[in-house]
């Protein structure tokens, strides 16, 4: 969907702000909101620009920076932590060569941390875009990253 299509879909009621931002971000291949996006949304809903900025930066699912094709979100909540999430994070940092919140040079992966994603039964877990991966081990990580890298080519 283009931004205009999203805006038209929702109408002008201010409580739609979050859903509009969701949809616009989802239609961006780099999974983020541009300055232009926030500006146009503010105009459409007749909200102050700063207000839209305040809302967009409150929620962790929104990003104002371009991200990779795949957003890897590793759960760092207590259950996953107990089951070894820190090792998973170290493993990912190593194999991707980026820090938390950063995107790989080839723009394929962005590494993020997340609070509980509700799949603690298979901790440690992570999400790649909307897909869940659980019972993670170092070997599994390598395998998943390889696979995704191949898919993106």
């Amino acid at each position: 969907m283009t931004r205009e299509e999203v805006l038209n879909k929702y109408g002008k009621s201010k409580d739609n702000l979050l859903y509009i931002l969701h949809d616009i971000q989802d239609s961006n291949p780099r999974h983020y909101l541009t300055e232009e996006d926030l500006k146009e949304v503010a105009k459409w809903l007749e909200l102050p620009y700063s207000y839209v900025h305040g809302v967009a930066t409150f929620y962790s699912m929104f990003s104002l920076k371009p991200r990779g094709k795949y957003i890897i979100r590793v759960c760092e909540s207590p259950t996953c932590h107990l089951m070894g999430a820190s090792n998973i994070i170290i493993e990912l940092v190593k194999s991707l060569g980026v820090g938390i919140g950063e995107t790989t040079k080839d723009e394929i992966f962005t590494l993020e941390l997340t609070s509980c994603i509700g799949v603690c039964g298979v901790a440690p877990a992570m999400m790649i875009n909307s897909e869940v991966y659980g019972n993670l081990t170092s070997e599994k990580i390598a395998q998943i990253i390889d696979e995704k890298r191949r898919e993106s080519k």
């Binding site: 500006k39 102050p48 620009y49 700063s50 900025h53 305040g54 930066t57």
Partner: peptide, 20 residues
């Protein structure tokens, strides 16, 4: 005027303008 807002969350929360 609404030039400023509270942006970000938690310890990072800050008074800020549109797109900083």
């Amino acid at each position: 005027v609404s030039a400023i807002t509270i942006a970000e969350r938690g310890f990072e929360a800050v008074v800020d303008t549109f797109f900083s």
